[in-house]
Amino acid sequence: MNKNKNISPIDRREFLKKCGTIIAGGTILGAGGLLAAKIKGKDADLFWQIDHELCTQCGRCETDCVLPVSAVKCFHANKVCGYCDLCGGYYRSSVKDLNTAAENMMCPTGAIARKFVEEPYFEYTIDEKLCNGCGKCVKGCGSFGNGSLYLQIQQDLCLNCNECQISKVCVSDAIKRVSKKNAYKLKESV
């Protein structure tokens, strides 16, 4: 009691502030240490990618990416492709005449190019600059062809959002974090 009286309120306030500083510093050190112990080095899952085995081409990849044109692009696995003339990803399923008129094309942006290889094979390539990730061709190829078209997030375009906006609306929960080593989940062969 006596001791207390000798301490002026100013000193007491200073003392309390010192205590606060020490507690705050301790908290930082403690929490920082705990968290630092959890950090994984190189193979931490830092990048967003689509698991094409789960993707059902709902179309939200096109509409929900934060970028004006989605970072999701159609990839083409040549080694899986049948090189068909009648491509389910190239033509709409309801086409009347098999010609390359725009109304017959599956892709709304004309991102799929086709090149004659040899009878009866055609090579298909995707122009990533045009593709908006709508997944229409992927659905067509998956339903009628070998499923060689599939959607992937193109890592150099993706902003690597702290939380991928598409992953929050993806109907099949197909977008997950992957490590740099597995930045793409590619279809290599059947």
Partner: peptide, 29 residues
């Protein structure tokens, strides 16, 4: 299901066609 289903066999090319090599840009984060 939209998996790889191999409805069509892998084509045998006579013209010596090579599969294109496609590089996908890796993140530079």
């Amino acid at each position: 299901e939209a998996f790889c289903v191999a409805r069509f066999p892998k084509p045998d090319f006579d013209s010596g066609y090579q599969y294109p090599d496609i590089e996908h840009p890796v993140p530079w984060e």
